[in-house]
Amino acid sequence: MMRLLASLLALAAMLWAPGAQAHKASDSYLNLTVEGARIEGRWDIALRDLELAVGLDADGDGALTWDEVRARHGAIAAYALTHLKLSAGGADCPLQVTQQLVDSHTDGAYTVLMLQGACAAPVETLAVGYTLLAELDPQHRGLLALRHGAATSSGILGPDNPRPQLQLAEPAGWRQFLEYAKQGVWHIWIGVDHILFLLSLLLPAVLLYRDRQWVGREGFRSAGMDVLRVVTAFTLAHSLTLTLAALGVLALPSRLVESAIAASVIVAALNNLRPLYQRGRVLFAFGFGLLHGFGFASVLADLGLPQGALLLSLVGFNLGVELGQLAIVAVFLPLAWRLRKGLFYRRVVMLGGSVAIALVAAIWLAERSLDLQLAPWSRAFA
């Protein structure tokens, strides 16, 4: 029980930690195209990460300017190329940075490194050595999309997969399916705003609101059915819009989607303080789940979908998201059920946790809707 309490307190501390990022943890996006022995690419790295690695804010005022970033172009390129090594047939494929640009992702500003390189012979298997931020952030990952002709391969680069060997022949459909399923699991686990929305809906599942107070349910079956209804509604909704957006049928502005997702987290959390729609939580999960699907689609757009196995890869990613979601439910529900009748769960976890979630989501909403960057290292260029 003490370990359980410690875990819950650690979760609360994480929610209150300053500068916590919504939607995803520290990622970079590496897109490589191989034609024969020639390699071209684009590497998007967050400026907040480069500030930690090489220092960008020369005057220390917390606001990055274009001049400050441009003055560090040499250091940025040197640091990046030191942490990315390509090889084929046992020989290195030297890379160089031909241009540096700036782009915006949903979590802030990124530098864009345009890459060129060549191997000694036409590439059949490409080895990718990736150690970016390994000395600073063990949770950092690189999201790789490798294109060769009509085929696209993807992978997650990091400490647990620092040097993958990628075959350039078009991978079998089942391998594409499994790879995108793994990507889906990873992205629901790092999608903090999606997780907090889901937890806000699940927290009252083991309780009933009677006489203006929360009390523990008596039957596990009723709690399980409530969770099943909420999760199913959320799953159906975001699966629908994820599919439509990934196929290019529907599209919404990124800022609108991300702002609405933050607002959904606030509403779901505040409803736990004084329920207004307890019986309508299923419809609420479905309605806001439609918006969350667009959020997942933006992640999938960064990864890219292989045209030769588009539908299979899309299904794999969607299934991975659901498996990651079910893993969260499988951990949450037994713990919540065991604690449901104690004051700790009802007051600290349920009410205190909901307040913490709402406050964090309010910061996200301000950042996203007003184009603010409340964390100094991610402020827009002056």
Score class of each variant (00 low, 15 high):
N318W: 01
P334C: 12
R338Y: 05
R347V: 06
S313R: 12
L365I: 10
F317T: 06
L312R: 05
V360T: 14
Y345E: 07
L335E: 10
L305N: 11
G320W: 12
K341C: 10
L323W: 01
Q325T: 01
V348S: 05
V348E: 00
V315L: 12
V355S: 06
A362M: 14
A336G: 12
V321K: 07
R347P: 00
A356D: 04
L319P: 02
P306F: 01
A356Y: 04
L351Q: 14
G316P: 06
I328C: 04
G352N: 12
G352T: 08
L343Y: 11
L326T: 11
F344Y: 15
G324W: 02
I363M: 12
R340W: 00
G316R: 12
A361H: 01
L333S: 03
G342R: 11
K341S: 08
L319M: 14
F344V: 13
P334F: 11
G324L: 04
V355A: 14
L326G: 03
A356P: 03
F344K: 09
V348D: 01
R338I: 00
L305R: 08
S313V: 11
A361W: 02
A309Q: 10
L343A: 15
V329D: 08
K341N: 13
L359M: 12
L365K: 04
V329F: 08
Y345C: 06
G316N: 08
V355W: 09
I328W: 03
G316T: 12
A361V: 06
L343N: 11
L333V: 15
A356K: 01
E322C: 10
K341A: 13
F332M: 10
V315W: 07
G316M: 09
A356G: 14
L305T: 14
G342N: 04
V349G: 05
G352R: 11
G353N: 11
V331K: 00
S354N: 13
A356I: 00
N318K: 04
P306E: 04
A356M: 15
F332S: 14
L339W: 05
G324A: 02
Y345D: 03
I363T: 09
G353L: 03
L305P: 05
V349A: 11
R338W: 10
L365M: 13
L365T: 09
I363H: 13
V348M: 13
F332V: 10
R338C: 02
S354L: 02
L305H: 13
L343D: 14
L314D: 02
W337D: 12
V331C: 13
L310Y: 05
R338Q: 05
A336Y: 07
Q307F: 00
A358S: 08
P334R: 14
G308Q: 03
F344S: 09
L365V: 02
L326I: 12
V331F: 14
G320P: 08
Q325S: 00
P334W: 14
L311H: 07
F344D: 07
L343Q: 13
A366V: 13
A309E: 04
L333M: 15
L314I: 05
G324N: 06
G352F: 08
V321T: 04
A327M: 12
W364Q: 03
L311P: 03
K341V: 06
F332R: 01
A327I: 08
A362K: 08
F317N: 07
Y345S: 10
L343C: 06
G320C: 06
G352C: 08
L359D: 10
R346Y: 02
Y345L: 01
I328N: 00
I357M: 15
W337Y: 03
F317D: 05
L314R: 04
K341I: 00
